[in-house]
Design a protein around this nucleic acid. Structure first.
Lengths: 307, 307
DNA sequence: CAACATATATGAATATTATTCATTGTTAAT
DNA sequence: ATTAACAATGAATAATATTCATATATGTTG
């Protein structure tokens, strides 16, 4: 019999176009999904996906079910917000600390959505830089930290968001563009352009340059566009998340290269106090981030569960 | 996490107003439902039902979830019809034999619904009387029998519909109206008014009068209204399903009494050939009967699974 | 074209969880 | 007060979703 789990699977299948990727996103194995699909096809006596060479494609029947899934899952989200409202669980505050500067890019539209969905929740960004963002949760100054912290601490819950690759960004025609992959040494010649945050907060420096003993020169800029302008005008090179520069790459405003053979990857978590973790609107906030980010950001990958 | 099973339960809970009755209708135990409700309440951290004395009542949150359930379950029905259409499983024929005369009453509106839902399925009633209706299935003359047959036969599948009580129908002020419960002897004085079918097809005769060795006088009428007219004008008494005479009872056109201490009950099954059983539109037909009958017919009870 | 990497399918084993069973706790009726 | 009807609960069981290990299929690469 049809179950919501199947609809969630169909949805992921539709967005990823692959059983394995969909499985990862749902934190299940590829096998589990394969079995689910089989059950569905047996139940309805029709095929839902078609193997076209290497990946899979949804059949017309599959597409119809995806349509159903989208509708139903949205209806459920709406109903759950109503439930929260009915039981007085819809009011509160969500003061967010952003450890990752670029994250503004995807967080902005999500905040807009959230504000209209939860008008009674005060949504704010806690500005300024903080050496230990998670401590702000304990102090009660903030409610949510979006960052790379995942060390278990009593009273704190870390929800995994996703992991993404940080790419070196160069001006078109830059000599390093000839290389397919850059290494630590390649950063010793050019000016490194970063956000104005401490060195230890910059993954490239902490994970690549410092371990390799390479020295560097740095200048800062507040906004992503400013950094890209400097790079494009050959004032230096930068290291930014792949999804943050997609548009600029498409227009050949800048070019990007992998850092190190396996790439430089960064994990993103959403951390809250334990008492915040079970709030309906926090759960919805999380769900929205997951849904929207995986649907709109390129090249991000799911992260293992861990709290 | 919320599952469709919970929504089906909420729905049944809403319609029956009782955990036990809802459980029966879903062919589950009362305990199973009780556990389901508990899980839901724990998950959402709110109460869905409230024990008001003996039975249960839905809270506002519960009512919101019922709304969700109705919407979602209807969406699924629509989608499943679309699936059938997409995969060419939406055309065929459904020639119905009605063993129980009164069943016209509830079948009519269901047939209307079905016709608009499945325009490519030829829906017909096979007229006339048949000593062995199920044999018509094997002969290929009919596709569905609605009757009391439930004996396992190879190649035939019996789906249980519901069971209902057959009541004695009297004119208001009839002397037998003084009794709370009638027995076989009470039928020996008055004219018995029935549909024009063989005696063995009349539950009152087969199960009450014949076993008791009572003799009776009988006259027939084609339509339920005609039978009721005769009863109301004191030409005799009848035995009809409770749900078939509800309106007439409400207006005091006739009165009804139980037959025997435990009442006279009749079981209704829908029988098809094995190859018909898995057809999507047959499944939908069954679902519709169940849904509509339990929602609109008074005093019917679920039947045990059996095929 | 072989060898390999990648992606999906499948059967058996396992883990999870829904349901039942047996029982207790409530409430209403007689 | 006693009983009947209904709901809740904990433990046992049954059902089934998921994983694991492996096979199969399809591109890719040297």
């Amino acid at each position: 019999m049809l179950e919501l789990r199947h609809l969630r699977t169909l949805n992921a299948l539709h967005e990823t176009g692959s059983v394995s990727l969909a499985a990862e996103r749902l934190h299940l194995t590829q096998s589990a999904l394969s079995h689910q699909i089989r059950v569905l096809q047996d139940y309805y006596q029709l095929s839902i996906i078609q193997r076209s060479g290497h990946s899979v494609q949804l059949t017309d029947a599959g597409k119809r079910l995806v349509l159903l899934a989208e509708k139903i899952l949205e209806d459920i989200r709406v109903a759950e917000r109503d439930l929260a409202r009915i039981t007085q669980q819809a009011a509160g505050s969500l003061r967010i600390v952003l450890e990752c500067h670029t994250c503004f890019d995807w967080l902005m539209p999500i905040m807009d959505t959230f504000r209209s969905d939860w008008p009674a929740v005060e949504l704010d960004l806690v500005s300024g830089f903080h050496s230990d963002p998670v401590s702000l949760l304990k102090k009660g100054v903030a409610d949510v930290v979006i960052g790379s912290e995942s060390q278990p601490q009593s009273g704190i819950v870390h929800f995994p968001l996703f992991c993404f690759e940080i790419l070196a960004v160069l001006a078109p025609g830059h000599v390093l563009g000839k290389k397919r992959v850059l290494d630590a040494m390649d950063f010793s010649q050019d000016m490194l352009i970063t956000y104005p945050v401490p060195e230890t907060r910059i993954d490239l420096i902490r994970q690549v340059l410092m371990p390799a003993g390479v020295t560097w020169q740095r200048r800062t800029a507040e906004l992503t566009v400013a950094i890209l302008q400097l790079v494009a005008s050959r004032r230096g090179i930068a290291a930014l998340p792949g999804w943050g520069i997609r548009n600029y790459l498409d227009y050949n405003y800048v070019i990007a290269r992998r850092i190190g053979a396996n790439g430089l990857w960064s994990d993103l978590y959403l951390s809250v106090r334990e008492d915040t973790a079970s709030l309906r609107y926090l759960q919805d906030f999380l769900q929205t981030i997951n849904r929207v980010c995986f649907a709109t950001l390129d090249g991000i990958k799911p992260l293992k569960e861990m709290r």
